[in-house]
């Protein structure tokens, strides 16, 4: 474990907590893409499927973190699609999730480290996570604005994989560990946040709200 991966995981946890708090406190999921949250839930379930196969005692933090990610993302989807369904902005959350899931699944069958079920599920999860934020960014571009709390959520969510890139550089240099598929997908994922990061740094940090040119 290195500092980059530690802060990456903490940033990821923070993102999940910020979103849950926003929805729970405001009792509304306005401005939140339910599809992105569904895709994240699918990512966690397919990536941590080993938790369900051979259940190992929760002796280490990694198992606990995996369970937190899965339960928090499923609970977030429950809040969006059931509890606060009335506030779900379905009209603007209109990016076709199939256009992300099918290519990720196809690519996972073509480019993977080993052609076996668990490995392909893991690879699918990595590819899907890289593009899972697109419906959320699409929704913001449609509504033309993002609530400040949602911007903080996106910043934490984007920073997590950016920090993982530093972690991969660290591990390559000190442990000569390379996981090419995760690295390429992680770089693509972080690049998708670039324009949002620019808006966040230039606006939200100064207390302004992100309003996209309509």
């Amino acid at each position: 474990m290195n500092i980059f991966r530690l802060f990456g995981d903490l940033s990821h946890l923070a993102a999940i907590a910020i979103l849950l708090l926003k929805i729970w406190k405001t009792r509304s999921c306005a401005g939140v893409s339910g599809k992105t949250q569904l895709l994240f839930a699918v990512c966690f379930i397919t990536r941590y499927i080993d938790l369900f196969l051979h259940f190992v005692s929760l002796y280490n933090t990694e198992k606990v973190m995996k369970l937190i990610y899965i339960s928090a993302s499923v609970f977030t989807c429950y809040l969006i699609f059931f509890k606060f369904k009335a506030t779900y902005d379905g009209n603007h959350d209109s990016m076709r999730a199939e256009f992300l899931i099918v290519p990720a699944a196809g690519l996972a069958c073509l480019i993977n480290t080993k052609f076996d079920a668990i490995e392909i599920l893991w690879t699918f999860s990595i590819y899907l996570e890289a593009v899972a934020i697109l419906p959320q960014l699409f929704l913001i571009s449609k509504t033309g604005e993002a609530e400040t709390i949602t911007s903080h959520y996106l910043f934490a969510q984007g920073s997590y994989r950016a920090l993982y890139i530093l972690n991969w550089i660290y591990r390559y240099h000190y442990e000569s560990h390379v996981d090419t598929i995760a690295i390429v997908a992680g770089v693509v994922q972080t690049i998708l946040y670039c324009d949002f990061f620019y808006l966040y740094i230039t606006k939200v940090v100064k207390g302004q709200k992100i309003v996209l040119p309509a």
């Binding site: 990821h12 990610y69 490995e119 993982y164 996981d179 995760a182």
Partner: peptide
């Protein structure tokens, strides 16, 4: 062998 492919990251 078999599970040598360990993805040790979250």
């Amino acid at each position: 062998y078999g599970c040598d492919l360990v993805h040790d990251e979250l």
